[in-house]
Amino acid sequence: MTVNKLSFFASGNGDSVLLKAGGTTIMTDIHYCQGHADPDDDSKPDFTPQIRDACTDDCLDLFVLTHPDKDHVRGAGDVFYLGPPEDWVSDPDEGDPLILIKEIWCSPYAANGAYDEDESKLILGEIRRRKELQSTPAADKDGNRLVVRSVDDAVVSGRFGNAEWRVLAPTQAEAHIPEPKKGELRESCNPTSLGIRWTVTVNGGKNHILLLGDATVAVLERIHDKILLKDPAALDWHVLLAVHHCSRRSLGWVVNPGKDEEFIESKKALKVLGRQLGSGYVVSSSRRFGRDVTPPSSHARNRYYKILAETDDLTKVMQADRDRFLVTGSNGDGKPEHVIFDLTASGPSRRKQAKPLAAPAVASSVGGGGSYG
């Protein structure tokens, strides 16, 4: 039976998105957590069985790294095999094999000089290993393929297996973050996020999925000026991943940070995110709301409510609109829950959990990554 499914795994403030388009399996980012560094953080269920079930012969067709902050790369080496494919053990004596990644996509930042942290060392090392093989016969072998993408490329759209893609970010300039001078703080790599709109067609009906990683408000405003005004349909979506774990800083500007924290929404950014088709869904890959730290931001959630309801008046947002804003960190009972959609001829259909998730197998601290709020 052909499977077309989209899964947002509950992994705290971190992205772990699995797209199954017929025989094609694509994973965007991973936040696979271990340890208990933050006892106040939400526990997270183990989702590796779902990834393995979606793969054929323990091989993932494509892994997309938006950017190498730890909440987008953590645990990659615990789930995926990272190394020369000829050394991969496909049938170990005990347990399941690590999953082989046939192809990796990343931004120029991840390929050309992203900084290493403990969580990112393995995946960035794998990207560099594959980059060194380019222009050699081995580069096209499963387990060695690497494609570095930006919106400035000659080709910014195409088909990968049974899914269509369109790159929206970053530009080459956005992907270039110089090393800090001595004594200076390192800049956030959020602006380097590889943003892609995926489309899966089922019996003639399209399912559009918009994934922008942790793109900043400046990046969204650039998308408005350079893409939305010329080709607005490129931003259409049925399912939108709330940018930066539902951070308000992707929707506007903080004035006088550290003082009165005045916030000004960006009309351009909101227009970029407002291309909902039909009764769409917004997914917040975050811990549950109601904590004293952000993200997720209640301000941003209210703005996404308005987008779903197609109104600027929060009082006109109906419960049915609010119900299409889904949070991986809370299923309504305060428990984490994977958000899963079946992709159909009439668009995405949310798959309700038959029962609450089992007791978590893994738990961890919240991943960091750039400015929150």
Rank of each mutant, 00 (worst) to 15 (best):
D231P: 09
A138Y: 12
A138P: 11
T199K: 12
D342G: 10
S285C: 15
R145Q: 03
D142L: 13
D142T: 12
G205W: 04
S90W: 14
G368N: 10
Y372N: 15
G367Q: 03
V255S: 10
G161L: 04
D142N: 15
A110K: 00
M318L: 15
D214A: 11
D118Y: 15
G274H: 10
V283G: 06
A234P: 03
D225C: 07
F80Q: 08
P92V: 13
L220I: 02
D118Q: 12
I209M: 10
V89M: 11
L124A: 04
H67I: 01
C106S: 03
P180H: 07
L308S: 02
R324K: 05
L6P: 00
C59H: 13
V282C: 09
G143A: 02
R303T: 03
H244T: 04
R145H: 06
F289V: 03
L212S: 07
P137L: 05
E164M: 14
S286T: 15
T216E: 09
T315N: 15
F9G: 05
T136C: 09
D116V: 13
R149P: 00
A354N: 12
R322F: 09
S150W: 00
G125W: 07
L240I: 03
K271L: 09
I104C: 00
R129T: 05
P336T: 03
S284H: 02
A154R: 12
K206I: 08
I30L: 05
G334V: 03
D116R: 14
N302L: 05
F289M: 01
G14P: 01
D292V: 14
V73L: 05
V327N: 09
G367A: 08
P92T: 14
H36T: 13
G125H: 02
D71C: 06
F63N: 00
A300H: 01
R145S: 07
